[in-house]
Design a protein around this nucleic acid. Structure first.
Lengths: 343, 343
DNA sequence: TTGTAGGCGTTATCAC
DNA sequence: GTGATAACGCCTACAA
C-alpha cells in the first residue's frame, strides 16, 4: 500500500527544497529545465496529486457546492440535481448533496455542517418544514457570512439571494385554459397543502383561468391532499363524489393515480375526463393513456441555478458592494399526450 | 457582512493566546473557569464555528464520503443514495455525490477529483462503460492508496474491497418459478445488454428455473434490449411476434412498457399474460394493473454499504494488516400485485 | 493556568 | 535558479 505522496516527500527524495518542487510542478520558468524534468518525472512515477484540502485551506475556496434538496425520490428534484451536477462538474466543482427530508431541523443541521468551510456556496429548495415555520434565519446567517446562496423552485421573498423559479401560475393557467377551450367545464384541481408554495402558485393559475372564462369557482372541485397521509383513499373518494370533465394535478403521481381511480369508475380518458399533471417525468410517459403534462425542465433549472451560483462565487472576489440579486424564470411547457383532447 | 471568525480573532480580541482559546472552547480543565467563561461567551456571541477544512487537514480525515453512481434518474440508485445519505449523516459524514452517467471516463475523472483528499472513502456502482471495458485500474489505485471502497450492485471480482449485492439470480429464479407453478409455460425474458452484470445474473436465474421444471429453453423468447436505442419499437415488435403467457423484465420500465404493448394487442393481464418486473418503485405501484415486482431494497442496500464503509474508515487506524473483505447480500423479495395470478 | 512552537500540505514572497 | 519563511486555521505536546 503506497501512501499518498506529498511535495515534502519528493523534496526529500530528490534532495531539493519543497518550494523548488512546487514551482517545478507548475512549470515555473524560475526553475532550470533539468531540475524540472527530474522532478516532473519523479512526480509522474509516484503519481503525485496535490492535496485538495491543503489547497482549499490556502485559497479559502473549496471548489465544492452544497446542494440541499427536500427529497431525492421525486423525479423533479432528481433532474434538477442532475443539472446542477452537470454544470458544476463542468466548472471543476464537486457537488455535496444533503437531503432535508422536508424537515426544518435537518435543513438547519445540514446547512451548518456545510457552512463551516466545506463549500463555496449553496443551492437549495426550501423544505416543507421551513416553509411552514417561516423561519429563515439559517439562510440569513449563511448569506450574512458572505456565502453565496441560490434558491430554486421553493423560494421565499424573505431572503435576499439569487433565485430560479418556474412560471408556475402561468403554466397552470395555460393548462386549464387549454382544457376550457376544448369545451371542458367542470375542471377539478388536485393540489397539496398550501405551505408548499408552488402548489399555491399553481392553484392561482387555475382560478385565474376559470375566472377569465366565466366558469364558476366551485370549491367542491378542489381537493387539497395532506402530505403522505392516506392520499390514495381520500382521492379515490373524491372522484366518486364529484362530477367533472377535467382535472389538473400538481404533480404526476396525483395525476396517474387520478386516472386510475377514474378508469376504475368506468370513465374514459380523455373522452369523459381530460387529465393534466405537473412534472413531465417517466410516469407521465409510461402511463396509459400517456399523460399530458407540464414539463418543468428540471435539468435546465439545475444548470441555471449552478450557473448563477458559480458566477456569484467567482465574482465575489472583485466587487464587494451591495450585489444586485437576480431571479431567473424557467418557462414551463405543456407536453401533450393522450390524456387530453388532441388539438 | 460579518466574516467568519477564527480562533486567532478571538485570541486577539480577548488578548490571550490562540491555544488558550482552543482549549477553553474544548472545556479543557487546564484553563481557569474565568477565562473559559469569558472565551466561551465571546465565541457564542460571534457564533464561532471551527473551520472544517483546517480540521480535515490536521486530522487527515474529512468526514466526507464520495458516492459515484451511474445514474440518478433510476429509482433504484436514488433509493440507494438515500440510504447512504441517511446512515452517513447519522455518523456525522457528508455525502459528496458524483454521477458517472454510465461513462468510464467520467467515472475515472470523478474518482480522481475526490481521491485527492476530499473524501475518506468511496461507495460506488460501476458504470456500464467500465463494465464493458473491464478496466478497473482507477479502483485499484484508490484502494492501493489505502482509501476504503465499497462496491454495490454492479460489482466486480477484480477489485478487492467490501461489496453489497442482491441475490439477483435467486430472485429471478423464484419469480419465474412462481409463474411456472401457476401453470405458465411460455415465459419470456426482457433483459438489457450483458455488460450490465446484473442482467446476466437475472438471466441465469431465469434459465435455471426453466431447466428445473423441464421447460424448453427458447431463445426466441429472450429479448436483449440495446441501451437507450429504439427500445420502445423493438419491444413492441417482439410482443407482436412471440406467443407467450408470461414475462420477466429486468427493470420496472421494461415491465410497464411490456404491459402496455400487450394490452394494446388486446391481451389481458394477468389472465392472458403474467408480468413481473425488477425494481419495486413507484412505477410498479402506480401501473395499471399494478405490477408484481422484485423489491431490491435499495435503501437498505445503501445503509449497508455506508455501514461497511464507515466501519472500514474508522477501523483503518487500528490494524493495518491485510484486511478481510466482506460481501453482504441483500435478499430481494417479491411484492405481489395485480399483474400476476394471486395465490 | 497560560503560552510557545511545530506541524498538517500547499503556495507566494522574498532573499540568496 | 534555488531555498527559506510565512501563512491558511486548527490542534497539541511541551515549556514557562
Amino acid at each position: 500500500m503506497k501512501r499518498k505522496i506529498t511535495l515534502k516527500d519528493i523534496a526529500r527524495e530528490l534532495d531539493v527544497s519543497i518550494s523548488t518542487v512546487s514551482k517545478a510542478l507548475k512549470n515555473s520558468d524560475e526553475i532550470s529545465r533539468d531540475t524540472k524534468e527530474k522532478i516532473q518525472a519523479f512526480a509522474r512515477l509516484y503519481n503525485y496529486r496535490p492535496n485538495n484540502i491543503a489547497i482549499s485551506l490556502k485559497n479559502k475556496r473549496t471548489k465544492n457546492i452544497g446542494v440541499i434538496i427536500p427529497d431525492i425520490v421525486h423525479h423533479f428534484f432528481t433532474t434538477v440535481f442532475r443539472g446542477i451536477e452537470k454544470y458544476a462538474n463542468g466548472c471543476g466543482y464537486n457537488v455535496i448533496a444533503c437531503i432535508s427530508d422536508e424537515s426544518f431541523d435537518k435543513e438547519v443541521i445540514n446547512m451548518e455542517m456545510l457552512a463551516n468551510g466545506s463549500i463555496d456556496g449553496f443551492i437549495m429548495a426550501l423544505s416543507a418544514g421551513t416553509q411552514l415555520k417561516k423561519d429563515y434565519n439559517h439562510l440569513k446567517q449563511v448569506t450574512d457570512q458572505g456565502i453565496p446562496l441560490v434558491l430554486f423552485d421553493r423560494v421565499t421573498d424573505e431572503v435576499a439571494c439569487d433565485k430560479v423559479v418556474i412560471n408556475d401560475a402561468e403554466a397552470a393557467y395555460l393548462a386549464v385554459k387549454k382544457m376550457i377551450q376544448h369545451g371542458r367545464k367542470r375542471i377539478a384541481l388536485l393540489t397539496s397543502e398550501a405551505h408548499f408554495n408552488v402548489s399555491e402558485k399553481r392553484a392561482e393559475g387555475y382560478y385565474k383561468a376559470l375566472k377569465e372564462h366565466n366558469l364558476p369557482i366551485d370549491e367542491e372541485l378542489v381537493l387539497v391532499l395532506p402530505h403522505m397521509y392516506d392520499e390514495e383513499k381520500i382521492s379515490e373518494r373524491f372522484f366518486q363524489q364529484v362530477d367533472i370533465d377535467a382535472v389538473l394535478c400538481v404533480n404526476e403521481i396525483y395525476a396517474v393515480r387520478s386516472m386510475r381511480h377514474l378508469q376504475n369508475q368506468g370513465k374514459r380518458i380523455p373522452e369523459d375526463v381530460a387529465v393534466i399533471g405537473f412534472t413531465d417525468g417517466i410516469l407521465s410517459r409510461l402511463a396509459s393513456p400517456s399523460l399530458t403534462s407540464v414539463a418543468q425542465h428540471g435539468e435546465l433549472m439545475g444548470e441555471t441555478a449552478a450557473r448563477l451560483l458559480v458566477d456569484r462565487i467567482e465574482a465575489d472576489y472583485q466587487d464587494l458592494e451591495e450585489p444586485v440579486y437576480r431571479t431567473e424564470v424557467i418557462r414551463a411547457s405543456i407536453v401533450e399526450r393522450e390524456s387530453t383532447d388532441s388539438t
